[in-house]
Computed example of a mutant assay.
Amino acid sequence: MPTLYELQGSYAQIQQMIVDGAGGLEETLESIEGAIEEKLEAYVMVIRNLEADVIAYDTEEKRFKERKAIAKKGINRMKQAIEETMKLSNRDEVKTEKFNIKFRNNAPSVHILDESLIPKEFIKIERTISKAELAKRLKESEIPGVKLVVNKSLQIK
Rank of each mutant, 00 (worst) to 15 (best):
E126V: 15
R77L: 13
A107W: 00
T59A: 12
V146K: 02
E142Y: 08
K73E: 15
A81H: 11
K131P: 00
I118K: 00
I123T: 10
K136R: 12
E37Y: 07
P144C: 03
I36G: 01
S141R: 14
I70L: 12
G24I: 03
E84V: 06
G21Y: 03
N106D: 10
A107N: 07
A107L: 05
R104S: 12
L25W: 04
T28V: 11
L117D: 02
S109Y: 05
E121V: 13
R77T: 12
A56Q: 14
I125H: 12
E142L: 10
A135V: 07
K62T: 15
F103E: 00
T28N: 05
K124G: 08
D92K: 14
I101S: 01
E51L: 13
I101P: 04
G21L: 01
S109E: 09
E33G: 15
S130C: 07
K95R: 11
I18T: 00
K68I: 06
F103V: 00
A107D: 10
E30N: 13
K73L: 07
K87N: 11
A107V: 06
D92I: 06
A132I: 10
E126Y: 11
K139T: 02
S31N: 07
V46H: 04
I70H: 10
D58M: 14
K65H: 13
L40E: 13
E51D: 10
K65Y: 12
M45L: 08
V94W: 03
V94L: 14
M78E: 04
I47L: 11
L29T: 06
E126K: 14
S89T: 15
K139A: 10
N105W: 01
E66W: 05
G74K: 08
N106G: 09
K124R: 15
N76I: 11
A132M: 04
K136V: 10
D92Y: 08
P108N: 08
K72Q: 07
E66R: 12
Q15P: 00
N49R: 13
K87I: 14
I125K: 14
D92V: 06
E26G: 01
F99I: 07
A107H: 01
E97N: 09
P108F: 02
A22R: 08
